[in-house]
Computed example of a mutant assay.
Amino acid sequence: GFPESHAASFALLAYASAYLKVYYLAEYTTAMLNNFPLGFYSPATLIKDAQRHGLHFRHVDVNRSDHFFTIEDGEVRMGLKYVKGLRKEVAEAIVQGRNPTCREGAESGEFGMRNSESSDSNHSPFTSVEDLVRRVPLINKKEIRALSLAGALNFERSVHRREALWRSELAIRPDVFSEQRTADNEHVSEDVAAAGFIRPMTEWQAMESDLRSMAVTIGRHPMAFLREGLKKRGVLSAIETHTLQKKDVVTVAGTVIVRQRPSTANSVVFITMEDETGHSNFIVMPDIFERFRRVITHNSFLLIKGIAEEGGMIKALYFEPIGGVMAEIGSHDFH
């Protein structure tokens, strides 16, 4: 009857997904990210899980990225699709602008299958922010700023994000390409950048900029930056929770990726947290949830104290927000 067929259908999906993830990780991950929203986990979680399984990602780049994620030499190139505020038609115009002889939309589809662009004789890369603005007239000032903050305007690592943002402000001025712009003004902007007046972002700042501008990062996990200080406080990582004994009292920190309250669970809440080592799972009884409701529902980064249970679960007793982390991680939450 229905239960058996329903179970068989889910079993087939689970087996097929597991097979693809094990043997075709790059293709599987690319397809998942290109077809989002779908499934249970956010793109940020999918990327970190793939990285822990050995997949390498390449940063978003106006000279390399398509609208969708693509595969280059076995690694995944981030797509322009994830830059917040960038319209699809502008992303496609960027790809068309650097590949003028390519048919629009022909480079890659939602499954991201194409070869590295470095061998494409039609490839005509953008050389500067000004060049991009000139060749892609559809782009507006909000979009050029978004690309700057996402790190997509580094031009073969010759320009860092803050410098790109500075140059983008110059490039989007109404008179940027007019003959009235004096040579003195050009020399001033060049001298400021050359003098090191604009300092590059730190690794932490770049990570936060990634999360704000794209909701994903291919750099270090946010928790990795805090690990040394957490260790000194005796706070465990996710992987360390896998070997706990029942009734061990522990404190774990991470970013919340799932908050569940199934209708059949009598108001019990289940939380999954993530860090650079993997996932940790918590059960929250109704009275504890009500006591810490606002902390649980309004913070992306939490420190949880609890007692280890069977099956790798931890019964949460105390919650505390982790300060100093400004960006948020996407999570799957009950409503």
Rank of each mutant, 00 (worst) to 15 (best):
E4T: 13
H6K: 13
S9R: 14
S9D: 09
L12D: 05
Y15L: 12
K21H: 04
V22F: 00
A31P: 04
N34P: 00
N35W: 10
F36L: 03
F36P: 01
P37F: 09
L38V: 13
L38I: 14
G39L: 02
G39Y: 00
Y41D: 07
S42A: 15
S42W: 11
T45I: 06
L46K: 06
A50K: 00
R52Q: 05
G54R: 02
G54S: 08
L55Y: 02
F57W: 06
F57S: 01
R64G: 00
H67D: 03
H67W: 15
F69D: 00
T70H: 01
G74M: 02
M78Q: 11
L80S: 00
Y82E: 12
Y82V: 15
G85R: 04
R87G: 15
K88Q: 14
E92P: 03
A93S: 14
I94N: 02
V95C: 01
G97M: 08
N99P: 01
P100S: 12
R103F: 09
E107H: 11
G109R: 00
E110Y: 10
E110T: 12
F111T: 14
G112Y: 00
S119G: 12
D120E: 04
D120T: 01
D120V: 00
D131E: 07
L132Q: 09
L132F: 12
R135G: 08
R135W: 09
N140Y: 06
E143R: 12
I144N: 07
I144W: 05
A146M: 09
L147H: 12
S148I: 03
L149H: 14
A150C: 03
E163Y: 07
E163C: 10
A164D: 10
A164P: 13
E169W: 10
E169H: 13
I172Y: 08
I172K: 09
I172S: 08
R173V: 07
D175V: 08
F177R: 13
F177C: 05
S178Q: 13
Q180K: 15
E186F: 12
E190Q: 15
D191A: 15
A193Y: 10
P200Y: 05
T202N: 08
T202M: 06
E203F: 09
Q205K: 11
E208P: 10
D210V: 11
D210S: 12
S213V: 06
T217V: 05
G219N: 11
H221P: 07
M223W: 04
L226H: 08
R227L: 11
E228L: 11
R233Y: 05
V235W: 04
L236T: 01
S237P: 03
A238G: 10
T241M: 09
Q245T: 13
D248W: 03
A253I: 09
I257L: 08
R261E: 11
P262Q: 09
S263K: 14
S263E: 13
N266L: 10
N266P: 01
N266A: 14
V268I: 15
T277P: 02
H279F: 15
S280K: 07
S280Y: 03
N281L: 04
P286A: 04
P286E: 06
D287P: 00
I288K: 02
F289D: 08
F292R: 03
F292S: 06
V295P: 07
T297A: 05
N299A: 01
F301N: 03
E309S: 14
E310I: 12
E310P: 01
P321W: 05
V325A: 06
G330K: 02
S331P: 03
H332K: 11
